[in-house]
């Protein structure tokens, strides 16, 4: 199962990234930027829902309920408006991460078999239909997504991170 976590209130990381994209990198067409931390969990045994409930209630590691919300297997999305298109960026660390499952299982009374996390950025940009969506995607990728130097790219450092970039389906 995948757990999508996001901030209850304002996401300061998304806010700073958005400001930097508009003011420093010149992406004036950016309407909104959202950020999610996704957790892919695999449990041993039955009743994954109950195990997830126990894990979340007994550990603040994945979700801090004071400031974060989550959805299971369903990515929270925003409606794409007229004259707008959405771009999704999934960012993973190149060094595969190992979490201390033994401690998590012991403290939460669950049988977590595997755990990995990644970051998702959703960008909503104005779209005038003069260029193709694919061309806009390429331009935005160069301008604010993949970092190549101090004036190009922000969301992904290609030396340490791997990115999957796609258009957000308006009906999703």
């Amino acid at each position: 199962m995948i757990l999508y976590t996001y901030q209850k209130n304002i996401d300061l990381q998304a806010m700073s990234a958005s400001e930097s994209m508009k003011n420093d990198l010149g992406l004036e067409t950016l309407n909104k930027l959202s950020r999610f931390v996704a957790w892919e969990l695999e449990f041993d045994g039955e009743d994954e829902t109950l195990q997830l409930k126990n894990l979340l209630e007994n550990s603040f590691f994945i979700v801090n309920p004071n400031k974060e919300l989550y959805k299971v297997n369903e990515m929270p999305t925003r409606t794409i408006r007229n004259g707008e298109m959405g771009i999704r960026v999934k960012v993973e660390q190149k060094i595969s991460q190992q979490f201390d499952l033994e401690t998590l299982n012991k403290n939460s009374g669950v049988k977590l078999k595997s755990l990995r996390n990644f970051l998702i950025w959703d960008l909503y940009v104005s779209y005038d239909e003069i260029s193709s969506k694919e061309d806009v995607l390429k331009a935005v990728t160069r301008q604010v997504i993949i970092t190549t130097n101090s004036s190009k790219g922000l969301l992904v450092n290609p030396v340490s991170e791997r990115a999957t970039i796609s258009l957000i389906n308006p009906t999703s």
């Binding site: 700073s16 930097s20 970092t147 101090s150 922000l154 969301l155 450092n157």
Partner: peptide, 13 residues
């Protein structure tokens, strides 16, 4: 910038 996005990433711009 509170290490937002990645450490040093916002300042670099």
């Amino acid at each position: 910038f509170q290490d937002r996005v990645r450490s040093g990433a916002i300042a670099a711009k």
